[in-house]
Design a protein around this nucleic acid. Structure first.
Lengths: 156, 156
DNA sequence: GGGGAGGGTTTGATTTTCCAACTCACGGAG
DNA sequence: CTCCGTGAGTTGGAAAATCAAACCCTCCCC
């Protein structure tokens, strides 16, 4: 009997199914920066226009962006993040921080984020309960779905 | 003269160039869980074997995973995260948290992470300097690259 | 010498991407 | 009025990536 054909049930996978396609998170980046217009997105992201069209549709369907007209006659549209979209911004910040640290030297960061506290933003992922920085060795995974352990599917 | 053809220089984009392809972050998830063997990855991720092969190669080249033999004769390999790979785990946790909150109800989370502090892990992205949770409205972007503003490229 | 694993390749059919060109609806300049 | 430019996409076809299934090779065990 062959093992289960279904992959591990996982919110990481489900989230990536919405925003994990090429360009999707860059669309969110631009929209969070306030650049919600089609041609701006094309220029700043460098994506083909048709791909951008499908990504935008998907993100709107997923409830991550909204499309609103900023002008009737002539009809002109703008994409803006929803609350759910804004709540993905920390993911972007965390990705940016990793890239700055691993792919660049200190003085060649392409963008610096300033926090309202007056300092340069360095995002840190912490545990809500204790406030400590999250580190791999402090984590233990507990699968909740019957049929799945950390190691994999049980008894097909 | 048409506007620049180059997209915005950005560490988010550069990081996604390494780990943004389909399955790559799921590979990292499994490897962080300790499931570094080829057939485990195939089963738990549900990716085609050939694609997995190319993803693994890319992640190793990027310095995010290493491939080590856990047995000579017969040769058997295992992929493990490097330090850089482990430092991407917070990104995964943040994605998981978003998915749990937006795509699920409280009682159907597929996986719960336990923090060493004894509590269930709820990852929060905070500012290193002030410790406050990062929220969109507290951020200001400062592009560092000549030719680029928040809005886009300047003077082609 | 047959039957598994484990760790991949190969093959061929389907999907996606990509890029350039095209459309349509206006608004303004001449 | 005609031409030009802008915004927001569509369309068409070639090139690349994905997919599923089958295949291969090396061992180990009986």
């Amino acid at each position: 009997m062959p093992a289960a054909k279904t992959p591990r049930p996982c919110s990481i996978a489900d989230t990536l199914a919405l925003v994990g396609e090429k360009y999707s998170l860059l669309v969110l980046r631009e929209v969070c920066l306030g650049n919600g217009r089609f041609d701006q997105l094309v220029r700043n992201i460098g994506a083909p226009r048709d791909i951008l069209t499908t990504r935008l549709r998907r993100l709107v369907d997923a409830g991550i962006l909204t499309k609103r007209a900023y002008s009737e006659r002539p009809q002109r549209f703008e994409y803006r993040p929803t609350q759910a979209g804004l709540e993905l911004e920390p993911v972007l910040m965390t990705l940016m921080e990793w890239g700055d640290r691993h792919l660049r030297t200190e003085d060649e960061r392409p963008m610096v984020m300033e926090h309202v506290c007056g300092n340069e933003l360095v995002p840190v992922v912490t545990c809500r309960a204790c406030g400590d920085e999250v580190r791999h060795e402090d984590l233990t995974a507990h699968p909740q779905v019957p049929g799945w352990t950390v190691k994999g599917p049980t008894a097909a």
